[in-house]
Amino acid sequence: MVNLIRGCGRGWNQIGLQAEFYFRTLHSIGDAALHYRKEVLRLIAQMGLGVGALAIIGGTVAIVGFLTLSTGAVIAVQGYNQFANIGVEALTGFASAFLNVRIIAPGTTAIALSATIGAGATAQLGAMRINEEIDALEVIGMRSIAYLASTRVIAGVIVVIPLYCVGVAMSFTAARVGTTAIYGQSTGVYDHYFNTFLNPTDLIWSFVQSITMATVIMLVHTYYGYNATGGPAGVGEAVGRAVRASLVVAAFVVTAMSLAVYGQSGNFNLAG
């Protein structure tokens, strides 16, 4: 019983420490944007295009593009076949306009952000922590949370906007090409149902989802990297814990925002 109480107490303290770090990071965003603009620009370039050999293939842009390309192709394959079973394969364009924007593109982008930008941020901060570089920054008077965590949150939110544009465009393109070029559906029929059911408001909410997920993912990853312990093995453990936590939180954000936006009426009208 005593061990259970102690475990609950440690868990509660951990939640409090995380909440304090997130509050301090968000509170320092203005300070980071004002005093550490060069660091923000450097992180934007690094997150968007990658460094070293990764920059040759386009870095995170290429990864997000290929992931959403594959999910868009799944819409074409599964949507066309399932609709064809009941004789309404013309509605494949509706499936692309409806599912890609509301569920598939945000979820896929969250996975890509967590596995690339987020994991990289955790590894960088963890390496700085075990090499005592963060302690050195604090000794010379640098605001370490603003310089290391807040700048990465700003960069992640800025980078996710063009990344999400690429992801949505690739998912739409893959679904259209798969349905029309591979399955032979008329492009006019596909475009008619796609344009009929593609709601601009849904796209706006989808972008809001992506920005919220980017903020949450970067907060989680910077926390685990900033507080990494245990040497190189501890950094690897921190990356794993951060990816697991960010994926869970991202799924919760997608679900909660979808219920908040579409939960009552669904913003859907089968007409037109």
Rank of each mutant, 00 (worst) to 15 (best):
F172T: 00
T173D: 09
A174C: 07
R176E: 02
V177P: 06
T179I: 02
T179G: 04
I182P: 08
I182H: 12
G184M: 02
Q185Y: 13
Q185C: 13
G188I: 00
Y190A: 02
D191L: 13
D191S: 12
N195K: 13
F197L: 07
P200C: 09
T201L: 15
T201I: 14
D202S: 06
L203G: 07
I204M: 13
W205V: 02
W205K: 00
S210M: 15
S210F: 06
S210N: 04
S210C: 14
I211M: 13
I211T: 08
T212A: 14
A214G: 01
A214W: 05
T215V: 08
T215F: 10
T215P: 07
I217Q: 04
H221K: 01
H221S: 02
T222N: 10
Y223A: 08
Y224G: 04
Y224S: 03
G225I: 07
Y226K: 05
N227S: 11
A228V: 11
T229M: 07
T229A: 10
G231L: 11
G231D: 04
P232N: 06
A233T: 05
A233Q: 12
G234K: 01
V235P: 03
G236Y: 04
E237R: 14
V239M: 00
V239L: 00
V239Y: 06
R241G: 02
R241P: 11
A242H: 12
R244K: 14
S246Y: 07
L247Y: 08
L247C: 07
V249R: 11
V249K: 10
V249A: 15
A250C: 11
A251N: 07
F252A: 15
F252Y: 14
V253W: 10
V254E: 15
